[in-house]
Amino acid sequence: MSGYRGRFAPTPSGPLHFGSLVTALASYLDARHAGGTWLVRIEDIDPPRCPPGTDAEILRQLEAFGLHWDEEVRYQSSRHEAYQAALEQLAGQGLVYPCSCSRKEWRDYAVYPGWCRGGVRHPERPVAWRLRSDLGQRPIVWQDRLYARQCFDPAELGDVVLKRKDGLWAYQLAVVVDDGDQRINEIVRGIDLLDNTPWQCQLRQALDLPAPRYLHLPLIVADNGQKLSKQNLAPALPTDETRVRPLLHQALTTLDQVPDSSLARAPVEEQLGEAIAAWDSARLQPRRCRALPGALGQDK
């Protein structure tokens, strides 16, 4: 194994779809081509959005496509103490604050205007905890492996919530703490998360965690231009081998790789073996989105 450590971290709000497959496959191939470690993390920090059994279904789908992970699957729902410790560390640096404001109150603003930075406006209400995006290094600059130089001022994005009023942890803090703890140094994910990166960079710096490299991927969109997602009722990935084989081949093509057409019906192990050896992230095109392939899932 090389020093490469990557991961695929789905939210179990529904089964994986073709867009999920493309992301998982890219992160898997990138890790395996480098001789590295590939992990799976279940980001189940929002139980009301995570139907029971969905995590097991996701793992079955990954296995059906031959995407086998190294090390034990991590569940964020078991990580409360780690996130709380990180929040307290940030509080000790004056980088977070409690906020009682409701979304309705600041709906006329593009981002939350920071009304509680100097003290909670409504002490009688439950509070969320927000990051002081105006503190720390600004702007945040990094070199994306596909989209080149990126530069954001986090303060223009607003003070993101790290812990919700209902006591549940928000994505931004949990993902940074777990990536740091699991020593993730290569992140492959969709471009819809690109503008989350500045907050995550701020948090990493404050928590003294090393910075990973980023490779953001174009979104897969349906015929109507909508992002392919669980919320938009994207079809679930199959697990029967006759349908899995052509879908895997289509996912490789969608990633701008050049799998031989003769492999479209080949077993997943054979397709992945060829794909790992031939993987070249330089072939990826930096488009913002990619249309869902026609005849998706049909065994031609």
Rank of each mutant, 00 (worst) to 15 (best):
A206D: 02
P218Y: 04
A206F: 04
Q205M: 09
V221P: 02
L215W: 13
Q205P: 00
A206V: 06
L233V: 07
I187M: 08
L194H: 11
L217C: 12
P238N: 12
P235K: 12
T197P: 07
A211Q: 14
L215H: 13
Q231V: 05
P198T: 12
K230V: 02
V188W: 11
L207S: 08
L203S: 10
Q200C: 08
L228T: 04
T197D: 01
L233F: 10
P198D: 08
N232L: 07
L207V: 12
L203V: 06
L228R: 04
S229I: 05
R189E: 10
Q231L: 05
L193M: 06
I220R: 08
P212C: 13
V221D: 03
G190N: 07
I191H: 13
A222H: 13
V188I: 11
L203Y: 11
D192Q: 13
P212D: 04
G190Q: 05
V188Q: 12
I191F: 02
L217K: 07
D208C: 07
R213S: 14
P212G: 03
L203G: 04
A234C: 10
P218W: 03
D195V: 13
V188M: 09
A211N: 02
K230I: 02
A222R: 15
L209F: 10
L237M: 06
A211P: 01
L217E: 04
A236H: 03
E186D: 06
L228F: 03
Q202Y: 05
L207I: 13
E186K: 00
S229M: 01
A222D: 14
Q205K: 13
A234R: 12
G225I: 13
N224Q: 08
L193H: 15
L215S: 09
A206R: 01
G225N: 07
I187F: 10
D223L: 14
A211C: 03
W199V: 02
I191D: 09
D223W: 06
A211G: 00
D208R: 15
S229N: 08
D223Q: 15
Y214I: 04
R189D: 11
I187A: 07
N232C: 02
P198V: 06
L228G: 02
Q205L: 12
L217S: 09
A211D: 11
D223R: 14
I220D: 00
D192T: 15
K227N: 08
L228D: 01
E186I: 01
R213Q: 14
A211T: 11
W199T: 06
P218K: 07
L215C: 06
G225E: 04
A234W: 00
L215E: 12
R189Q: 10
T197N: 09
D208T: 09
P218T: 10
I191V: 14
L207N: 06
K227H: 05
P210L: 15
T197G: 06
L194I: 11
T197C: 06
T197I: 09
I187T: 05
E186Q: 04
H216P: 11
I191Q: 14
E186P: 00
S229Y: 00
N232G: 08
H216T: 09
E186R: 03
L217T: 10
N196R: 13
D195G: 09
A211E: 15
K230A: 07
P212F: 15
I191M: 11
V221M: 09
A222P: 00
E186V: 05
L228P: 01
P235L: 02
L203H: 10
L209E: 07
P212E: 08
A236S: 14
A236P: 02
H216E: 09
